[in-house]
């Protein structure tokens, strides 16, 4: 069954001549793990807010399970869990309270809501902070609570806006595992907005890439990456203070200090390997087929 069908969605903000979303059409099937990628200001958050019925389209329609979300104010909220980009909005509730109230207000009984609270505390390893309020927690902990609140009462659709922002690497891995399990075991449709293309590639089944308010590519990552079949992904690791000299004209994308990613032509690979092998600044390098990140960067350009 189709979860979301979006037709010619356009959204203008007041006093802005360019639309934040420009004639977007998308279909997301039930049970899909769908990624929405794009640079800052590409219109991703505007799009998901309209999908959650938190923002009204200027034109176009959003259907959820065959029904227009705009027809009934409460319809979308009965089917989705929404995790906003801005973190946890309730500052003075404890973790326990946030989870309990979310499950209870989504229609569960008080006893079931308490059980759900305990399940989520265990699942996201929030036991040590469950009595703390949001004011007493770090940015990463708040993101985890916001995710847990979104998951409370197991909504059939979760819309997650940058869920792994502010999270430590180990916690990010755990979050991806939890989302993958929710998708695989419970059949939850997961719609993910993210910048973290490298990590998202491991979980998402279909993707839409946005730029300047438009969807410029959509499909399965493998099919989209086929566009880059003549190119290879090169990762170079080096001492941050001594950048290596590259043989070609390709501009590297810096992932972190001392770590570059490059998209090179296949027939240039030998030249690069030869050059990097003899460069004393280079600590390691890896060559692989092009990644979703390469596709993303080739479409939206490096940040």
């Amino acid at each position: 069954m189709t979860a979301y069908e979006i037709n010619h969605l356009t959204r203008y903000y007041p006093n802005q001549s360019q639309p934040a979303n420009d004639d977007i059409s998308l279909v997301i099937e039930e049970g899909e793990f769908f990624g929405l990628l794009g640079d800052n200001g590409a219109g991703k958050t505007t799009l998901v807010k309209q999908m959650a019925n938190l923002l009204k389209p200027s034109s176009g329609q959003v259907s959820l399970f065959g029904k227009l979300v705009s027809d009934s104010p409460l319809y979308a909220s009965q089917h989705i869990g929404y995790m906003p980009q801005s973190g946890m909005a309730l500052n003075n509730v404890t973790v326990d309270e946030a989870l309990y109230f979310a499950a209870h207000l989504r229609g569960w009984s008080r006893a079931d809501a308490r059980q759900e609270r305990d399940r989520l505390v265990d699942l996201l390893q929030l036991g040590e902070v469950r009595k703390r309020t949001m004011f007493q927690m770090s940015g990463g902990q708040k993101r985890l609570v916001a995710l847990a609140t979104c998951m409370a009462a197991r909504p059939p659709i979760m819309i997650l806006d940058e869920p792994t922002n502010d999270l430590a690497p180990q916690t990010r891995i755990r979050v991806w595992d939890i989302l993958r399990e929710a998708n695989a075991n419970d059949g939850t449709t997961v719609i993910l907005v993210t910048h973290n293309v490298l990590e998202a590639e491991k979980v998402i089944q279909r993707v839409a890439i946005m730029k300047d308010g438009k969807v410029i590519a959509k499909g399965r990552p493998g099919a989209l990456k086929a566009q880059l079949s003549r190119q290879l992904h090169l990762e170079v690791i080096f001492s941050p203070n001594i950048p290596p000299t590259l043989p070609g004209s390709v501009k590297p994308h810096q992932i972190s200090p001392g770590r570059w990613h490059l998209l090179i032509e296949r027939d240039e690979a030998a030249t690069y390997i030869n050059s990097l092998s003899h460069d004393l600044a280079v600590e390691d390098f890896r060559l692989s087929t092009a990644t979703l990140e390469d596709l993303y960067l080739s479409m939206v350009g490096p940040a």
């Binding site: 807010k49 959650a52 019925n53 938190l54 104010p73 409460l74 909220s77 009965q78 989705i80 869990g81 929404y82 906003p84 801005s86 973190g87 909005a89 309730l90 500052n91 979310a102 207000l105 989504r106 229609g107």
Partner: peptide, 15 residues
């Protein structure tokens, strides 16, 4: 301004 209204609006509660 801090997103609390959006949070409540994302839950199945009356305005």
């Amino acid at each position: 301004t801090n997103g609390t209204l959006d949070y409540f609006a994302s839950l199945p509660v009356y305005r």
